[in-house]
Design a protein around this nucleic acid. Structure first.
Lengths: 260, 260
DNA sequence: TGCCGTAAATGGTACGACCATAGCCTGGCA
DNA sequence: TGCCAGGCTATGGTCGTACCATTTACGGCA
């Protein structure tokens, strides 16, 4: 390797040193001069190359780790390794943001409905028939699970999440898939409220099944209609819960200021 | 203040110390025990409270700054202040991700088209008439600018960005507004390619004006039609550029593998 | 009363030392 | 000859001290 000479980095002379180091390393990574899996010089070696104290180097590495660009391993053959960014880091950032910035449930539902409609239209025209059939099968499986007297909400929640992600994948657009992933990871999908309530539970599951069926049969308008119905149910459920139990555990159900 | 006793933090005994500190402070912030604008103890004071070295404290603070939860000021009355998270941090994370994960232009266009349609429909039903008129006026202004022989692309680009954000704001849903912001900040909106080309420039501007006009008059179907046309133009432009000049400067125009 | 200089608090940096860990290498044992 | 154990070494993780740079506040002086 090039462990002897590494002309990648140059000494720091101004400003906050660690920030400058962050910029240099980050630039090297996005330029491709440092590829994922590659190992940076050791902290003591970088200390020498940058002409700065080790603490500064460590703080820069900490920042880059937080950005998701590096991972560090200790021990021999340890060090900072370039990491391929994944969408999870974005979702994490989004989730933290949404924790501090409560979103009205109506806005969340509205957004999800928009994305869902776009995904469905694309999935219908692009996905393979076998994928559509598998989606339908999974939806019927969810329906069957929720028809039981005491369904395991952990399992059904996971299945619902899987259905959403599968549909998003079928749309064949990574951006839509990432948004759906971020929604799922970022705020627990809010659908679990739907499944906790025995009244809505079966309706919602049946609706999922109807939607998947329409998608499998290629009936676009019908599928969009079912999706609309899903969100009608969700809105009803959210409204009844926010009225019925003021001490709800779901944080973002608190401030609903626009239900006329 | 409570600068004498601060029972918020407890000493670290296991694992990576700085990570534990990050978790404790982050928890205190999202719980509201530390409100935006509040000041954390000084590094030396926290060093005492956590029972750890100052370097560890500094690394934890660096991480929290990167997360967007803190900002630090130096000098007397300096220190780490709790910061209100803004969506810019999410956009930043997204932009970095998209730099490492090139997105096919067709996918980007498709996504933007979905969002645009959703925004337009909502804006049309919700926005005040005066906002719609202002949007139309701005669009006509853009059209006039681009009709000149040598338009200032910096100004027109900024105006286009402003138009998009204004429309998103008119939709009255913060999530859609944030997504549009993230798109604009994250990848320069890709529309600038449209305005650089004299052939597409005027068509695109006229189309913006038509769209805004339809919105102002409340003609939904017509507005959606114009939006569709905007993306037809954008697709044509992108295709012609990727064929004509292989050395295009726009990074994500490189890998287009699905134009049949 | 108003201005300026000094003191104090605080983050920023440097250096040195030591510990903990993970891979490796060597030597001894079966 | 083959395998296993123990030590060796590179590397991150932590600690402590000292000093520098900057910003605010306070107090003395004109």
């Amino acid at each position: 390797m090039n462990s002897t000479v590494l002309p990648l980095f140059s000494p720091i002379t101004f400003g906050r040193a660690s920030e400058e180091i962050v910029l240099q390393v980050e630039a090297a990574i996005v330029d491709g001069r440092l590829a994922p899996g590659e190992r940076l010089p050791s902290e003591r070696e970088m200390q020498r190359q940058f002409g700065k104290g080790r603490g500064v180097i460590r703080e820069a590495i900490k920042t880059l780790v937080q950005k998701g660009l590096l991972e560090v391993r200790k021990g021999a053959k340890g060090g900072a390794y370039v990491r391929k960014l994944d969408v999870g880091k974005v979702s994490e950032s989004l989730a933290l943001f949404l924790k501090q910035e409560p979103v009205a449930p109506e806005h969340l539902i509205e957004f999800r409905e928009s994305i869902d409609r776009a995904i469905t239209q694309l999935a219908m025209t692009r996905a393979a028939q076998e994928d559509k059939d598998e989606l339908h099968a999974k939806a019927r499986q969810l329906e069957a699970l929720l028809a039981q007297d005491d369904p395991d909400l952990t399992v059904t929640g996971e299945l619902d999440r899987e259905l959403n992600l599968m549909l998003a994948r079928m749309a064949g657009n990574p951006l839509l898939e990432w948004v759906m992933q971020a929604l799922q990871m970022g705020l627990g999908s809010s659908d679990h409220a739907l499944y906790e309530d025995p009244v809505f539970r079966e309706k919602a599951a049946a609706n999922w099944s109807d939607t998947a069926g329409a998608i499998a049969r290629g009936e676009l308008m019908q599928a969009l209609g079912f999706i609309g119905h899903h969100y009608v149910l969700l809105r009803q459920c959210v409204r009844s819960r926010s009225q019925g139990s003021p001490e709800t555990e779901i944080p973002f159900l608190a401030d609903s200021s626009e239900t006329p």
